Amino acid sequence: MGTGTWWFVAAVCAAWAEVLAAAVLLRGRGGSGGPGATGAVPGPEALALLRGGRRAAVTVALVALHQRGAVAAGRKHTVRANGGPGRTRDPVQLGVHRSLRNALAVPALALRPEARRAVDGLRAELGRAGLVRPPGRRRAARLLLAAAPATLAAGLLTGVGGPDGPGTALALAAGVPVLLAVLALLRLPPATRAARRLLAELRERHPLPEHRREVTDGRLVQLYVALYGDPALALFLPRFSRDGGLLGHRASDGR
């Protein structure tokens, strides 16, 4: 092999090193504290955060507040405060309620500082429990994954098909697996495998009922909304969900 080919091989090895370092950063870690650390099931907002991200957690908090009469549907698919938050110490519910100085649509509400801080605190607890990949590690992994294609491109500058560089077949055979690995890691959800297993187990233990009259416990309603999202909202809180704009959104990336 010529010098150009050796440089390309070295670039491929460096790109793989970046991919493997990113994989280590994204690897789920067992935690020593927080929800789930001692076998306890996380609360509804936490489960919603694992399933659908920030907006899902805020939606469950709104359901709990609505059950106490603390919020109601506003005009044009917004939610408004309807009195005090009631006797709750739940930080996400309190943060969401404090954010409702004016009627807001759910996406805007989820981005208000008070709501964001409360959800971020919950996310930190889930990270310590090994159920969410810590944001700092995710950011570092994304930087490494962005660097891997650039490293490959630098190796290819030696000249694909040139007399001293890697041929097209070698470039494809060595470069394509790296790029596929980068794409696979970028698609990993924030929730870890342990979190996805927990959600699957809870859905198996708590299948969505066919009729809302089968459930009279408000806490169970929150659990169903956390686990199933829109189908549970439409079943248990059809008017509030429709008029308040809680329905019709996809699960987020967890940010």
Rank of each mutant, 00 (worst) to 15 (best):
P163E: 14
P189L: 03
L157G: 15
P177S: 08
L170C: 03
P177F: 06
L188N: 04
L156P: 00
D164T: 07
L157K: 05
L185K: 02
L170R: 02
G165Q: 01
L172G: 10
L186F: 12
T158L: 06
R187N: 09
A171F: 09
A173I: 05
T158N: 14
L172T: 11
A169H: 11
V176F: 07
T168A: 14
T158G: 15
G162A: 14
G159L: 03
V178Y: 01
L179Q: 12
L183D: 13
P163L: 14
A184M: 09
G165H: 01
P163I: 05
L156N: 01
G165N: 01
R187I: 06
G175I: 05
L183N: 11
A169I: 05
A171K: 02
L170I: 07
D164F: 04
A184E: 13
P163F: 13
L188Y: 06
L180R: 14
L186K: 15
L186H: 13
P190F: 06
P190W: 04
L188V: 15
T192L: 03
L172Y: 10
A191W: 02
L172S: 06
L172F: 10
V178K: 01
L157C: 15
D164M: 04
G175S: 10
P177I: 11
V178R: 00
A173G: 07
D164L: 08
A171Q: 06
G175E: 05
G161H: 08
A173T: 11
G159R: 02
L180A: 14
G175C: 07
A173S: 14
A184T: 14
L156T: 01
P163A: 15
A171N: 05
A169D: 13
L188R: 15
L179D: 10
L157T: 02
T158W: 00
A174V: 08
R187C: 11
G167C: 07
G165R: 00
T158S: 15
P166S: 10
A191C: 02
G159I: 00
L156C: 06
D164E: 11
T192K: 03
G167V: 01
A171C: 10
A169W: 06
G175P: 04
A174E: 14
G167A: 10
L179K: 06
A173Y: 09
L156K: 03
L179W: 08
G167W: 11
L183P: 02
A171S: 14
A181Y: 08
